[in-house]
């Protein structure tokens, strides 16, 4: 009697794609539940840093809506950090542990692997972001005035699609840059916090700054969210929400297509140059 019967059914096509997405998102969702200390480190501590900026605004007697901008910016920052450190540089770490080779030789598509990483990260980060928003709103009595809930949800959704699309795209790029990628992720913190306007309306910049910054979906996303969620938002917005929604749609398509193209390119190049396996291999 055979010790193990043959596999009775192997899914292919979209079922396999979906299974791969779920498979790869699993460690992110479960990994987080297993380590509850994130509640402290990823919600409470960022909250303190948000509070520092809130108090700067209070010290210089800024209008109260600015306090809300900081709280929302702090929550959005959690997504940006997640994309930088757990998407963009992830394939590099996967290569070092040997997982990347196994992903590539499996029939599941790499696009599905990246999507799984993105959805897992998005889920985990959303819990953090909600924590920051709730805690921040309570502590600092943020007063939201929602102009259009539908538009707000749409903006958030599109921001996330394009943001994680950007993460998926840069993952391939960073894989080829190897260790340098770590430094580029680091470089993409403070300067991006600045030009994307995490803590203030970008309207105050000369127009070219937000235009350059719009490459990062959070720039448009946060500007639209400020306009849709705060009383003084519309007067402080850079461009109209509808244009920003269009911009986010374009970015989403561009980044997701870019992710696919770069992934293929990366795989071809890495297979040619022997860069898919861990450095010791």
């Amino acid at each position: 009697m055979p010790m193990l019967p043959p596999v009775s059914k192997r899914h292919t096509g979209w079922r396999l794609f979906l299974m791969t997405v779920i498979g790869r998102s699993y460690p992110r969702v479960v990994g987080m539940q297993r380590e509850r200390s994130w509640i402290f480190f990823d919600t409470f501590l960022p909250m303190l840093s948000v509070a520092a900026y809130v108090f700067v605004y209070r010290a210089i007697k800024a209008p109260e809506d600015y306090v809300g901008f900081v709280v929302v910016g702090g929550a959005m920052m959690a997504y940006w950090m997640n994309v930088l450190w757990s998407m963009a540089s992830q394939l590099y770490w996967e290569k070092e542990t040997g997982n990347l080779a196994l992903y590539i030789i499996s029939p599941g598509s790499m696009m599905a692997i990246l999507l799984g990483m993105a959805l897992g990260g998005l889920f985990a980060t959303t819990l953090r972001a909600v924590g920051i928003i709730l805690l921040g709103s309570l502590l600092f009595q943020v007063h939201f005035v929602i102009a259009s809930a539908t538009q707000l949800i749409l903006v958030f959704f599109l921001t996330m699609v394009s943001l994680y699309g950007l993460g998926m795209m840069t993952a391939s790029l960073f894989l080829l840059l190897s260790r340098e990628a770590w430094h580029i992720s680091n470089l993409a913190q403070e300067p991006i916090f600045l030009i994307s306007g995490f803590y203030f309306p970008i309207k105050n910049f000369p127009a070219w700054v937000p235009m350059v910054g719009s490459f990062i979906p959070l720039t448009l996303g946060m500007d639209a969210m400020r306009q849709l969620a705060f009383a003084s938002g519309p007067s402080l917005g850079w461009i109209s929400v509808n244009i920003e929604i269009m911009g986010l749609i374009v970015l989403s398509i561009m980044f997701l297509m870019g992710a696919r193209l770069l992934l293929n390119y990366m795989e071809r190049l890495a297979v040619r140059e022997g860069r898919l396996t861990e450095s010791r291999g």
Binding site: V7, R10, M19, G23, Y26, P107, G108
Partner: peptide, 13 residues
């Protein structure tokens, strides 16, 4: 869980 995850990439229920 690790083994299950890899099985997913091969389309095994």
């Amino acid at each position: 869980e690790n083994l299950w995850m890899f099985a997913q990439f091969y389309g095994i229920e």
